[in-house]
Structure formats: structure tokens, C-alpha cells
Design a protein around this nucleic acid. Structure first.
Length: 213
DNA sequence: AGCACGATTAACT
DNA sequence: GTTAATCGTGCTC
């Protein structure tokens, strides 16, 4: 018996580059509630609603990889807004970012968590047989669940038929957005270590009004 | 050439 | 609560 999928969200057009070509903090908050869509072989869709992000903004931000100037690794951040920036860390994990701000202005939003919507069994096959909410509740887990690796670095997230896109998702109550310091940067100097550029929604705020068009 | 550490995770005590 | 895993990157010598 095929497991029951959550509500099938038929993706509309992806978010356009103009969505990402804005101040990074605005893009970060606006990404909450949007739908991450991974098109796999045979047209299978793996999707989830983004509910946790972090902003990394420019070479002055000492937590941002742009702090040490442009290199082969971080070049994506200097590229067009709406591209992916995917990097490898801790010797084993991939991280997915969406590049923001006008081209040449290095900044990005780290996608830290998404609530599974479609393709949940594919996520389980890659992540182990865990409860839905544990499949993509961290930046490296998200990349595992959605099968994202270096091949996505510098690729557009805005092309309709691409393997990875971001689409309008749920309407979000701005009052429900939580902000805290970014995590995993405890050796970064102040004020960057404590500036509240992590944004997220509580699960209860994900179960409300959903719309796909 | 060597080295310290990382936008983390899973598995421990 | 702690810690091993595991290796690319950027910095120092």
C-alpha cells in the first residue's frame, strides 16, 4: 500500500530573480513558508516548506564566507541573485544557500530546514526511517533529504524546469516569525556572533492556511 | 608543507 | 550534557 502523501502542492512558477535581488534580511524572512522543489528522475517531485533560514551578508559580516574575499569555493555569492551557493563543510556535509542582493554584492540565505510535503519516502530512503519532522530539520539534513550536492553550486533556482527551484508556498503571519542569533558560529567576533539573523517559524505556524497559487 | 577549524550530525554517557 | 566523524579551505611557516 502506498503511504498517504501530504497535500499535493502543484508548484506554480518559481520565485524570480527579482525576488532574490533585494536586501538579504527581507529575502530571508520572505523565504519562510516558500516551497523548495526538487525534480528528480522520471519527474518525481520532492518538496518541503522552508521554515528556518539564516542571512549572511557581505564581506563585513565575519560569519559570512565572503569575509575572506572571492575564492573558487564561495564564488557563487558574487554571482546572480537566485543562484544556489552550495558548499561542503565538516568533511561530510553539504549546505544550500540562495544568493541574494544585486550581482557582485556577496550575500546569501542559508536554508536550514524544510517541512516535508511530497516525496517523503524518497527522503526516508536517503535519511533513514525517521518521523517526517526529522527528515529535513537541519541544513545538512535538508541537503541529504533533497539530494543536493556540489553539482548544484552556482545553478539557477529560478528556471521553471530545473532540478531545484523555490516556489510561492504558504501565507505567513509576520508576527509569527522568530529571530535569534545564527548558530554554529561561536568563534566569530561580536557583533556578528550575536546579531539576530536566524529566522524561523514554529511548527504550529506551518499547519495553518496553505495555498499554492 | 603543515595545521587548525568549520554556517553539522549522530551517537553516545 | 559530550564527542567522534572526516576533509576542504584558508592561514601560517
Amino acid at each position: 500500500m502506498k503511504p498517504l502523501e501530504r497535500r499535493l502542492i502543484e508548484p506554480s512558477r518559481p520565485l524570480e530573480r527579482t525576488f532574490f535581488a533585494r536586501p538579504t534580511l527581507k529575502v530571508a524572512v520572505a523565504l519562510l513558508g516558500t516551497l523548495l522543489v526538487r525534480r528528480e528522475a522520471k519527474g518525481d517531485l520532492t518538496t518541503g516548506i522552508i521554515y528556518e533560514v539564516e542571512a549572511y551578508i557581505g564581506s563585513d559580516d565575519l560569519a559570512c564566507h565572503a569575509r575572506s574575499g572571492q575564492t573558487a569555493r564561495n564564488a557563487a555569492m558574487w554571482g546572480p541573485p537566485g543562484n544556489a551557493y552550495v558548499y561542503f563543510t565538516y568533511g561530510m556535509h553539504w549546505m544550500l544557500n540562495a544568493v541574494t542582493e544585486p550581482k557582485g554584492n556577496p550575500a546569501a540565505v542559508l536554508l536550514r530546514a524544510a517541512f516535508p510535503q511530497n516525496g517523503i519516502e524518497r527522503m526516508r530512503a536517503r535519511r533513514g526511517h525517521k518521523a517526517d519532522h526529522l527528515l529535513s530539520d537541519g541544513p545538512a539534513k535538508l541537503c541529504q533529504a533533497f539530494a543536493i550536492d556540489r553539482t548544484f553550486d552556482q545553478r539557477s533556482l529560478c528556471d521553471g524546469n530545473a532540478a531545484l527551484t523555490i516556489h510561492p508556498g504558504m501565507a505567513i503571519n509576520p508576527d509569527a516569525v522568530q529571530a535569534t542569533p545564527r548558530v554554529g558560529i561561536k568563534n566569530v567576533p561580536e557583533p556578528w556572533r550575536s546579531i539576530p539573523w536566524r529566522f524561523f517559524l514554529h511548527p504550529k505556524d506551518l499547519s495553518g492556511s496553505s495555498h499554492s497559487h
